[in-house]
């Protein structure tokens, strides 16, 4: 979030509410839950870190928000570094994998049932993402984010299918001796 807010300031110095509106536009339906304070908290942190400066300007009388935020040169360097980073969130599958193994080993729970419960949860999430995506016009930027969310959930569901296949066979073998 900090890097994203910084990068959005690279276009031009902006008010907090302008940044928030731009974030919401790019995030689409996924940004609707973002609360107003989040952008200001982030801006305050960035200011303390010396990455942005804040200037008071004479705004319109009906606009209480008269602060304009701009990047410092340190902020510009950080944006440039962020853009060339190739870091990527790592899929966090090991925890669930270990849960299944532990449940099976200690006979705490049937791994297949754990997989089924997880599958139902992911299907509901996928349904939410898909319905939101269907409501977006073709080629919308926000739709692209929903598309990514849906594709990842689909990949996770396919992995769960593989988990179910292997763990149901494992159960059969141990019962069969």
């Amino acid at each position: 979030m900090q890097d994203a807010v910084l990068a959005m300031l690279a276009k031009e110095p902006s008010h907090g509410y302008q940044l928030r509106a731009r974030l919401r536009r790019v995030l689409g339906p996924l940004g609707e839950s973002m609360n107003a304070g989040q952008v200001y908290v982030t801006l305050a942190r960035l200011e303390r870190a010396g990455l942005v400066v804040c200037e008071r300007v004479d705004g319109l009388p009906d606009r209480p928000d008269r602060k304009v935020y701009a990047l410092t040169s340190a902020g510009q360097q950080r944006v440039a570094a962020w853009l060339t980073e190739v870091g990527w969130p790592k899929p966090d599958l090991a925890e669930f994998h270990l849960k299944l193994a532990a449940a099976a080993a200690a006979r705490l729970a049937d791994p297949v049932e754990l997989v089924d419960a997880q599958r139902r949860e992911l299907l509901r999430r996928l349904g939410e993402a898909q319905r939101a995506l269907l409501a977006e016009p073709d080629g919308s930027t926000a739709g692209l984010l929903l598309e990514g969310v849906a594709l990842r959930l689909q990949a996770d569901l396919r992995w769960l299918e593989a988990c179910e296949r292997v763990w149901s066979r494992a159960g059969y073998e141990s019962e069969g001796g």
Partner: peptide, 21 residues
Amino acid sequence: VDDTQLAGRTGRLDGLIGLED
């Protein structure tokens, strides 16, 4: 082997992305 109701939980999209701090 499974029967899941999918509709009914709507409008809560914030759980779908992790935008931290």
